[in-house]
Write a protein that binds this DNA or RNA. Structure first.
Lengths: 211, 211
DNA sequence: GAATAAGTTGACGAAAAGTTCAATTTCTGA
DNA sequence: TCAGAAATTGAACTTTTCGTCAACTTATTC
């Protein structure tokens, strides 16, 4: 075969395996995942999974790498720039929409963190730090310009991250709390409005003089 | 032995096993946890663990039940009553302090939710719903009384829960985001202040007239 | 349409995990 | 002190899982 035109078969099978692996890893964690389960979920025999990946480690690492890459592509455009009100609203809305559409990836990440983030590469962690630092700078510039009230930028970002991630990772709890059967787009919209409105109301300076 | 005065040995060993199990389950999840690892962590031989618990399921269920009971006892006094400002501040502070002191329990709960909350009993889930409903009623009463602005009470509670839980469950990420080596009490205090202040500022009505 | 590379897969062996058991020791109350 | 209950534990048993392999089929190139 040698470099066949697009490596169609290989590409497709690797995607199938990683899709299945992401789902199982997200639910059961690294140690709890059985290769057999990944194989069944992907519709391939176990030996075929081993044809593409040398070990469970390899599959896990590949799934994590793909997840981070996907997050980046989806969220990199959402810069915390421009007008703070619009920026926060767009950011929260986009993150919640992503949580709604890709809850599995989000849970995989959560599981990896619960494990102690041992498999996150230094490069990946540095990337998280860089993104955070950039946004901290933006927020502190807003504060300096008087566009928002004085606030700890890092904890504010964590609060935003936490609030949006929760809807993907803790769906059973969110369902119980909302009294819903299943989470729908409307729920994510309501969440985005509540988070953005409440936090913004607390951030935008009160025009004449504070209480 | 028969009812020995306090069942000292049994009580102590069960506690040891559940302590060890909570830690391992929190890190590796149910399927990823090996009885051998619980045994080693508790300092007891594996067969002794089976003397007290019939199966891995039993240990897991007992750990979850103990966790929920502990949460309840620790947090039940923190009612969302009185003055909203004081109530929210005390609630956030108490939850963060608890997250700081008992991160392992929090992670075990997170892991169980990621699994799909299959082991949470209907009673436990009902308890969560009841607690939520009670607090929703309190918040809506505040809204009706004009003490806080109109807001979706359920999403507000989720936001509080998310923000506080994040510090326990996602410590590696929080560390990276804060640029810290290890999280200390000061970090949790700063987080409590940021969360409570920002959300409160958005909730307390602006006296004369809104912007 | 061969020759060669890529992909498929059932079956297997080794290692590890859950669980049981029987023999032994320690504890407690009388 | 002594009998019976509780607790301890090494070793075995059973099942599951990882990872391998060799035989086989499909795809690609010339």
């Amino acid at each position: 075969m040698e470099k066949l035109q697009e490596e169609r078969i290989r590409t497709r099978n690797i995607r199938r395996i990683l899709d299945a692996a992401t789902e199982v890893f997200a639910r059961k964690g690294f140690d709890g995942t059985r290769i057999t389960e990944i194989a069944e979920a992907s519709g391939l025999p176990k030996a075929n999974v081993y044809y593409y990946f040398g070990s469970k480690d390899d599959i896990y690492r590949a799934a994590i790498a793909r997840l981070i890459q996907g997050w980046d592509e989806a969220l990199e455009e959402i810069a915390l720039e421009k007008d703070p009100a619009e920026a926060f609203t767009r950011y929260v809305t986009a993150k919640l929409r992503f949580s709604h559409q890709h809850p599995t990836e989000s849970r995989l990440f959560a599981n990896e963190i619960l494990r102690g983030a041992e498999f996150l590469t230094e490069q990946e962690r540095k990337h998280i730090r860089d993104v955070t630092n950039y946004r901290v700078a933006v927020i502190e510039a807003w504060i300096a310009a008087g566009k928002i009230v004085r606030v700890d930028a890092r904890h504010l970002l964590i609060m935003l991250w936490a609030a949006t991630q929760f809807y993907a990772d803790f769906q059973p709890v969110v369902r119980d709390a909302l009294g819903n059967r299943n989470l729908e787009s409307a729920d994510f919209d309501a969440a985005a409005r509540c988070i953005a409105d409440t936090i913004l109301a607390g951030l935008i300076p009160r025009d004449p003089e504070p209480i």
